[in-house]
Simulated assay, not measured.
Amino acid sequence: MTSTSTFPTVLRELLRTHQAFLAYAATHVHTLDLTLPQYDIIITLGDTPGMTFKKLGEKTLITKGTLTGVISRLEDKGLVQRVASETDGRSQIVRLTATGEALYERTFPEHLVFINRIFNDYSPEDVENLESALLRLHETVTTLRSNGSGKLADETDE
């Protein structure tokens, strides 16, 4: 079991790595005159017939309130459109326009190359070990969150 004294260091490095990754990814995305959340929408919708706001929010991890604004800005750029769902009259489907699809097809392969540079000095085993450790951490946090085990011993339900 990990001692509580090592936890702040691990958490700090995880957060620092996340911030560094986002800043790195943003350097490429900003050359496309987009923000990271906007490009996240573009690559999530690429090669799909579109998605509901709910599904798009789940796949991108963008909150509902933020998602609406991001979609509106992408509409203003002519990259996405909202259409009524054929199966649920209350839902809207967000999908790429022809311009948005062309942007996705042109830029996504180069974005993958840009991102994959991060791992140039990693062996396949290093990448596998990193992925395994991150998956394990995610599963642990998700399990603790979903079953209420995240409460401290002295916390009580009121």
Rank of each mutant, 00 (worst) to 15 (best):
M1R: 06
T2I: 13
S3V: 08
S3H: 13
S3I: 04
T4I: 12
F7N: 04
F7E: 13
P8S: 05
T9Y: 10
V10K: 11
V10E: 09
L11I: 14
R12A: 09
R12N: 13
L14Y: 05
L15R: 09
H18T: 10
Q19H: 08
A20N: 07
A23C: 01
Y24T: 12
A25P: 12
A26M: 10
A26K: 07
T27A: 04
T27P: 03
T27M: 00
V29I: 14
H30Y: 08
T31P: 00
D33T: 14
D33W: 10
T35M: 02
L36R: 00
P37I: 11
Q38D: 10
Q38T: 10
Y39T: 15
D40T: 15
D40L: 06
I41S: 00
I41H: 00
I42Y: 00
I43L: 06
T44Q: 03
L45R: 05
L45P: 00
D47Q: 11
G50C: 03
M51W: 01
M51I: 02
F53D: 03
K54H: 15
K55S: 08
K55W: 07
K55Y: 04
G57A: 11
E58A: 08
K59L: 15
L61R: 09
T63G: 14
G65A: 01
G69P: 04
I71F: 03
I71E: 01
S72F: 12
R73H: 06
L74Y: 05
D76V: 08
D76L: 11
K77G: 12
L79E: 01
A84L: 15
A84F: 04
D88F: 14
G89K: 04
G89M: 06
G89E: 14
R90V: 04
R90E: 11
S91W: 07
Q92W: 04
Q92L: 10
I93S: 06
R95F: 05
L96Q: 01
T97A: 10
T99C: 07
T99A: 15
G100R: 04
E101I: 00
Y104V: 05
Y104H: 13
E105V: 00
F108H: 15
F108M: 07
E110M: 11
V113H: 03
F114P: 06
N116F: 13
R117K: 15
R117D: 09
F119D: 02
N120S: 03
N120F: 06
Y122V: 03
S123K: 03
E125N: 08
E125M: 10
L130E: 14
S132K: 07
S132A: 09
L135K: 13
T142R: 15
T142V: 08
T142D: 02
T143K: 09
S146W: 10
S146R: 09
N147R: 01
G150Q: 08
K151T: 01
E158P: 15
E158H: 10
E158D: 10
